[in-house]
Amino acid sequence: MKLTHIIPLLTLTTAVYAAPQSFDFKDPKGVNNAVFKLDAPLESINGSASGISGNVSFDAENPGATTGKVVVAAESLTVPNPMQKEHLHSANWLDVAKYPEITFEAKSLANVKTTDNVTTADATGIFTLHGVSKEITVPIKLTYLKGKLSSRVPKLEGDLLVIRGNFVINRNDFNIQKGQSEDKVSPTIDLSLSIAGASPTK
């Protein structure tokens, strides 16, 4: 076999077997956050959660194959009003002592569109909240930042993956005060996820 035949074959083999990268979403800078909003008569209840972890498998050559799991520590959900925070964490609402994690496990992506380093897609997966798991589809935006890890974490080479997603859930679907207090707190919850994961090179 000639060398001119071997080189394309090697390139193809490398492309086929290029392993997806694993991105760790435990952010040392504490910037990752999930924001939630519920409408209420006097003012909307706006809060955020910072206790985010999880792993996502991403292949820059094939972003449509992205899978992974993002975990939010329920205890980290915060609102600026102390009484609202106490209610939110209590057994009547999220019961964070019994259900300490809120998770989304992405199984597949559809409608994948990639331009340069940005991919948009609809991620379908299992969303678990308050001990109830449901399959949902979330529009997401993935931004692959090759070689940018050292800009955030000095002396650590690697890549970053930024995931953004906005979606709406209904608390009744997750048995959170089902059918109750709807005049005081909206049954729909707007969720917004902005997280960055790191994949250090070894």
Partner: peptide, 8 residues
């Protein structure tokens, strides 16, 4: 770097 708005 990431364009994420961190909340504290």
């Amino acid at each position: 770097v990431t364009g994420i708005e961190g909340i504290t």
